[in-house]
């Protein structure tokens, strides 16, 4: 097995509270790994450390074997690790299509001068990008609203737009923070199919999610966080049967 993304002994505290405590986790290339756990378990904090939004006190983050902790956030994205946010962060002041196109940043190489004179190569690339973005928006049912301000979308649609934007980046590893929040059951099912298709296209996925049926349906492996530490890790059926997980979720069974 080759690991796309690894956390090695990561610890991060906020004012004496250990949000993430000595977490070691490996995400296999080409898989969907779900991270679950009760509220406050440290899932989002772990994401933020892996993408350099926070600096860990201890431990390392590795992307395809190379250390990335301490790098600039934008550098990590350039290396192919793209994330979405727990509450959708679409860019206000831009249309749905423009939002999606921002994702292409890490793929574009045209110089400032080439863009100023709109060199033929720039025009060509832009046209191809627009086509690609529109096709992706179509997949998530957003194509008809491509020219509307992104902030006019519902919260659920904004989360989908954020996913489209991340896909336009052609990520190698994609971290999704609660992608199903704000979606209804039918939309969640469609999302599940899309996530499987994204994995089959060769993109490694790490998903933080509360919707258990979604997680159980798509995850190749599940890691359970509780109080900042890894409680259990394994294939869905094993995690589901783990008594410690049941205890953490349903409360301790007193005998």
């Amino acid at each position: 097995m080759s690991a796309a993304l690894e956390a090695v002994g990561i610890t991060k505290s906020f004012g004496g509270i250990r949000a993430v405590s000595d977490v070691t986790l490996a995400v296999e290339e080409g898989s969907i790994t779900a991270i679950i756990g009760p509220n406050g378990a440290g899932k989002t904090t772990l994401f933020n450390v892996l993408t350099s939004l926070y600096r860990p006190e201890a431990g390392e983050a590795k992307l395809f074997g190379a250390r990335v902790d301490g790098l600039d956030q934008s550098r990590i994205a350039e290396l192919g690790l793209i994330r979405t946010f727990q509450t959708a962060r679409v860019f206000p002041g831009m249309t749905v299509l423009e939002n999606a196109l921002v994702g292409a940043h890490r793929r574009l190489r045209a110089s400032l001068v080439q863009q100023l004179i709109r060199a033929p190569r720039v025009a060509r690339t832009e046209r191809a990008l627009v086509d690609e973005a529109l096709a992706l928006l179509d997949v998530f049912g957003l194509r008809a609203r491509a020219d509307e301000p992104a902030t006019d979308l519902s919260v659920g649609s904004q989360k989908l737009l954020e996913l489209v934007r991340a896909l336009v980046a052609h990520p190698r590893v994609l971290l999704l923070d609660e992608p199903a929040a704000g979606l209804n059951d039918a939309e969640t099912e469609e999302l599940a199919a899309s996530l499987l298709a994204i994995r089959d296209a060769g993109i490694t996925l790490v998903v933080v999610e509360h919707n258990m049926s979604l997680v159980m349906g798509i995850a190749d492996r599940i890691a359970v966080l509780d109080l900042g530490a890894v409680l259990a890790e394994g294939v869905p059926s094993a995690v589901r049967a783990d008594p410690r997980v049941i205890a953490a979720y349903l409360g301790e069974a007193r005998s």
Binding site: A77, E78, R89, F91, P92, A166
Partner: peptide, 14 residues
């Protein structure tokens, strides 16, 4: 425009 709107999200896209 992305920077104007949300610097953190802009950085997260490289």
């Amino acid at each position: 425009q992305a920077i104007r709107a949300d610097q953190t999200a802009a950085r997260a896209l490289g």
